[in-house]
């Protein structure tokens, strides 16, 4: 290759990036071949044609769907609930850490770090446990979850965290399937954050309640998501349910969040559950 051939190299890079729509196993087998055809179809171009991009994304989603079709509905439900519990745990730990930073910004009394260090460590351990739910063998992950849950109960009287970790341990040993590891799951982070942030109360934007706008945006996102894969949408609905239970169970309930979360919960479950149970094809992540 001679110097200065930046055009074709750029096109190739963009095509390779687009081909990530296909699952890794499929790319290993056919990626080169698809890339060759895409490059032949787009000579002297910097970007592949719009219809090429659309077809590759659609083909990739279809290949992912074909790969996942063997999972029975109950496995999909189980994975979605595990995802919800893991996200909830991560959010709880994030909330703890945020509280520490708020306290530190006000200036802490001397010696505070001695009292809080175990909680810091436990928070980090919990995050590791959440990752273990994806990557470790169940025989290792489940006992670690139970021990961590017990530690929260002893150290912090963290009944909610203990309950969530116990549920995660029990559900993780109920089935054989591994958690999906697709990077596309990261798309669940913004909606989960929407669920977790304290509500903006009675703020209004152009005369419309911000709570209502957030709820509508969330419902639209969920519906769009269900078209591709019902599991994350269902997981978010379950997450909304867990947050509601946690809020009711704790004394620091966020007044005003109840109604909005109920909308998420109802919309998510109504939209996602039938698809999750009936359509195995709609699991592309």
């Amino acid at each position: 290759m001679t110097a200065g051939e930046s055009g074709p190299t750029g096109l190739e890079r963009r095509c390779r990036w687009l081909l990530r729509a296909y699952p890794a196993a499929y790319r290993a087998e056919h990626g080169d071949e698809l890339l060759g055809t895409m490059l032949e179809a787009a000579p002297d171009r910097a970007w592949p044609a719009w219809r090429e991009m659309r077809s590759v994304i659609r083909g990739g989603l279809r290949a992912r769907s074909a790969q996942n079709q063997r999972l029975p509905a109950r496995a999909n439900v189980r994975l979605a609930v595990m995802l919800a519990l893991a996200t909830f745990l991560a959010l709880m730990v994030a909330t703890y850490f945020r509280q520490f930073f708020v306290l530190m910004s006000f200036g802490m009394p001397p010696g505070w770090e001695n009292g809080l260090l175990p909680i810091w460590i436990l928070g980090v351990v919990t995050l590791v446990v959440v990752i273990l739910a994806w990557f470790a063998r169940r025989a290792i992950a489940a006992p670690v979850m139970l021990v961590t849950g017990a530690a929260w109960l002893v150290l912090e009287r963290g009944v909610i965290l203990t309950a969530a970790l116990t549920c995660l341990a029990v559900i993780s040993v109920l089935g054989q399937e591994r958690m999906p590891r697709s990077w596309l799951w990261w798309a669940a982070v913004p909606p989960a954050w929407l669920l977790a942030v304290p509500r903006l109360g009675h703020a209004h934007l152009a005369g419309i309640s911000v709570n209502l706008l957030v709820a509508v945006a969330f419902v639209l996102c969920t519906l769009a998501w269900v078209v591709v894969d019902a599991r994350p949408a269902f997981a978010l609905a379950v997450l909304a349910g867990i947050i509601e239970v946690a809020v009711l169970a704790s004394s620091y309930g966020r007044v005003g969040s109840y109604k909005a979360s109920t909308i998420y919960l109802a919309a998510g479950i109504t939209a996602a559950l039938p698809l999750l149970l009936r359509t195995r094809r709609r699991t592309v992540l």
Binding site: H30, E33, L34, T37, M38, A41, A49, R51, E52, R54, S55, V56, I57, R58, G59, G60, R62, A63, A66
Partner: peptide, 10 residues
């Protein structure tokens, strides 16, 4: 389009 072709070929 490329994606359509390979979906059909598969």
């Amino acid at each position: 389009a490329t994606g359509t072709l390979y979906t059909a070929l598969d």
